[in-house]
């Protein structure tokens, strides 16, 4: 069987306010990925500081933390083959003006500071982020009724 990866995806406060949660979930479901964790929370600054630690010295860091803690976030864990790479393709370029139509940011965002969604940028990053945002008891292991034993083209 194809190796299963997991990634963290989060709908940011602007995405929740604009009622884009269902649309985002639907895009990942329609792609065929499996939802193994999901919750809505007001992210504490402690989680956000750790999550964005690589951006700590950037000039936009304070505004980013302030914005991400300003309202509710929907955090999700999606599972599937190559899900980290594919999720990045699905959400599009970080700067929404560069994001292609058909991607989440390309379709729903106009400015880099309000770009609707986050997805892990590497397999290692995904594992780190999932452990940061979710307790292991919050991640479900369920048999996907639609999963076929062979992942190869017929």
């Amino acid at each position: 069987p194809w190796p299963q990866e997991r990634t963290l995806v989060a709908v940011k406060p602007d995405g929740v306010q604009r009622r884009l949660v269902g649309t985002v979930i639907q895009r990942f479901e329609r792609r065929g990925f499996k939802l193994v964790g999901m919750k809505m929370l007001q992210a504490p600054e402690s989680i956000l500081a750790e999550h964005y630690r690589d951006l700590q010295r950037k000039p936009f860091y304070p505004a980013l933390i302030s914005y991400m803690s300003s309202g509710p976030v929907v955090a999700m864990v999606w599972e599937g083959p190559n899900v980290v790479h594919i999720s990045r393709a699905m959400i599009g370029h970080t700067d929404s003006t560069e994001a292609a139509p058909g991607t989440i940011r390309g379709d729903f965002s106009v400015h880099i500071s309000r770009n609707v969604i986050h997805a892990s940028d590497s397999v290692d990053g995904a594992q780190r982020e999932i452990e940061l945002w979710f307790q292991s008891s919050e991640l479900l292991n369920w048999a996907d009724g639609g999963h076929h034993s062979s992942c190869y083209p017929a």
Binding site: V21, G22, I25, Q26, E29
Partner: peptide
Amino acid sequence: VGEIVRRFE
């Protein structure tokens, strides 16, 4: 799930 959430949103 997404379809249902979308309808309520």
